[in-house]
């Protein structure tokens, strides 16, 4: 027979025993300690977009597609530019024809299947362009859901896809709250912005940053306090997209509006 007192004591002991290994593991995991202390000189790529400077020329999209061999006439793109026009009646009109590969060469808003909508200049209250690309989240849900380990985050924070390993299940495409992923029309595997990993690792700027004539796009190391991008992020008012998802996106925006999603 087990008494009530024994039962409670054993339960307490058992629970303590269960809790100990997990806690011990948490404390002595050397990799984690190393990372937290910043054992190495830190490198973590971050992006900054100034929406005031963007004129919607789309030269960034053109350069990205050519540099990264994303089929030029396919509708998919690793980066794109959105146009937001808000009229006096409070309505939002937004489009991004062909991902803005050829810029915005008409005042008409592209409604897709529903044709075009012309907006008179005098009806506009606010209008601006917002370049979009992968947010290279600190907690990327796309990498978390991959069942085979084909998409992953590098040490310096860039999320990449292993084309030889991807099985094309599409979970990551569904998991991304920003819709930046798509199937590559040629390789039929998941495709996404790599922050031009092949360029930034050679000390070059990404193709979109290099192409922008207006300095609307910038890339830098957020762990380096002297980096111009880091200085702006630390000292000015910047925003990120969909922070409520808890993905900790690392593409920062100057001049975000609540209409931008």
């Amino acid at each position: 027979m087990i008494t009530r007192r024994q039962f409670l004591a054993n339960t307490a002991k058992g629970l303590a025993g269960l809790a100990l290994p997990a806690a011990a593991f948490e404390i002595i995991d050397p990799k984690k300690l190393f990372a937290d202390k910043g054992g190495k000189p830190g490198l973590r790529w971050a992006f900054l977009v100034d929406t005031y400077k963007c004129v919607g020329c789309g030269l960034c999209v053109k350069a990205c597609k050519i540099e990264n061999e994303v089929p030029y006439d396919a509708k998919v793109s690793r980066t794109w530019v959105e146009r937001y026009v808000i009229t006096k009646d409070g309505k939002l009109h937004a489009d991004s024809p062909m991902a803005a590969r050829d810029g915005f060469t008409t005042s008409k808003i592209d409604l897709g299947d529903r044709g075009f909508e012309d907006i008179k200049a005098e009806d506009i209250t606010k209008a601006f362009f917002v370049p979009k690309l992968c947010n290279q989240c600190e907690k990327p849900p796309c990498a978390q859901v991959c069942p085979v380990g084909a998409t992953y985050q590098t040490e310096d924070g860039v999320v990449l896809v292993d084309r030889t390993w991807c099985i094309g299940c599409g979970y990551c495409i569904m998991a991304c709250p920003y819709g930046v992923r798509f199937f590559h029309p040629v390789y039929h595997v998941a495709e996404k912005c790599t922050f031009c990993y092949h360029r930034i690792k050679k000390g070059l700027k990404t193709a979109c940053v290099g192409a922008c004539p207006f300095g609307a796009r910038m890339i830098g190391n957020i762990k380096d306090p002297d980096d111009p991008v880091t200085k702006i992020i630390r000292t000015q008012r910047v925003g990120v997209l969909k922070s409520e998802y808890g993905t900790e996106p690392q593409v920062y925006y100057i001049g975000l509006d609540e209409e931008v999603r």
């Binding site: 050519i66 380990g149 590098t154 040490e155 990449l160 030889t164 390993w165 092949h198």
Partner: peptide
């Protein structure tokens, strides 16, 4: 399991080099 742990860093390490070896086209 590489630097970013099991949740985000489970991958083939060589894939990083595949991406680094991608051809640069624009010099700007």
């Amino acid at each position: 399991i590489w630097e970013r742990g099991y949740m985000y860093g489970f991958h083939r390490k060589g894939s990083e080099n595949d991406w680094k070896a991608f051809k640069v086209k624009y010099k700007f």
